[in-house]
Simulated scan of single mutants.
Amino acid sequence: MVAERESTRERLPVGATAAGRPRSGRLDQPRPPRRRLLPEWDPDAFGRLSERIARFLGTGRFIVWMTVMIVVWVLWNVAAPRHLRFDEYPFIFLTLALSLQASYAAPLILLAQNRQDDRDRVNLEQDRKQDERSIADTEYLTREIAALRMGLGEVATRDWMRSELQDLVKDLEERTVDGHRRHGVFPADHPRAGDMDDR
């Protein structure tokens, strides 16, 4: 038995498991990084750079600098000595440079707008969730206030207690007066009332 196991180990290649699979295919180990032909970049950093460029392209400073550069370019290629001119009258090189700048500016502006749209979408989603929470809280508070009002309808208030006490005092006064009338005793007819007045 031991000899058979050792012969099986000798037949398997180094790095292979008992099932015959190489160790690199195991799920409990990370894959080695693969080499890519294209260069890698951080999309978020590229997006931030494009937003910065698009923000600069939309300023008056960029328009002023671009106008100054074009004026200097045209004046140099018109007024400078012939051997120092690098772009003659049709200004083909200037046209090519401006076309190249426009061809890069348009996608950068679109990329910045897409990122802004994504941010707006996230903000709208957060606002919608916040509104839903606010509506739920308002409905809960409305139900609680309605329950408190219903509960307060059964509680004795100060005005109700005052009116009840006034009614009791009136009843007591009426009973006292009725009792005196029945027995024929009034405060003026009471025998001691005159003695008390004489005193």
Rank of each mutant, 00 (worst) to 15 (best):
G153P: 02
T138Q: 10
S163D: 15
E164T: 06
F86A: 09
V64K: 11
E173I: 02
M150R: 15
S7M: 10
H183S: 14
V155H: 05
Q130K: 10
E125N: 15
D131P: 02
W160F: 08
D118F: 00
Q126E: 15
L110R: 15
E51M: 00
R181Q: 15
W73L: 09
R23N: 08
W41Q: 04
R61K: 14
L110V: 08
L141H: 01
R162L: 09
E6L: 10
H83N: 12
F62W: 12
Q166S: 03
I92N: 01
S103K: 03
T157N: 13
G179A: 14
D171P: 00
R31D: 10
Q101K: 12
F56C: 07
E173R: 06
S24D: 11
R181L: 14
D195T: 07
A80Q: 06
R85W: 03
P187S: 15
A45T: 03
N77R: 08
Y140I: 01
D87N: 12
V74T: 05
L94H: 03
L168P: 00
N114S: 12
S163R: 14
T8Y: 08
R34M: 02
E88D: 05
T17N: 11
T176F: 12
R5W: 04
R121W: 05
G153I: 03
E4Y: 02
G25H: 02
A45P: 01
P33Y: 00
D197K: 06
T8R: 05
V155Q: 08
A147N: 07
A188S: 10
R192M: 06
M196P: 00
S99A: 15
R192E: 06
Q113A: 08
G184M: 05
V68P: 00
R5D: 05
F56V: 04
D127Q: 08
L49V: 03
A79T: 07
L38S: 10
G194W: 00
D118R: 09
A80E: 07
A18P: 00
L98T: 06
V169Q: 12
P13V: 02
I53G: 00
R199S: 13
P30A: 03
D195A: 13
R23T: 06
R115C: 04
V64M: 11
G25Q: 05
D127T: 09
T17I: 02
M150D: 14
Q130D: 13
R133C: 01
R199C: 11
P191V: 01
G58H: 13
D159H: 07
Q29Y: 01
G25T: 07
R61Y: 15
A136I: 00
R143C: 09
V72W: 10
L49S: 03
V177P: 00
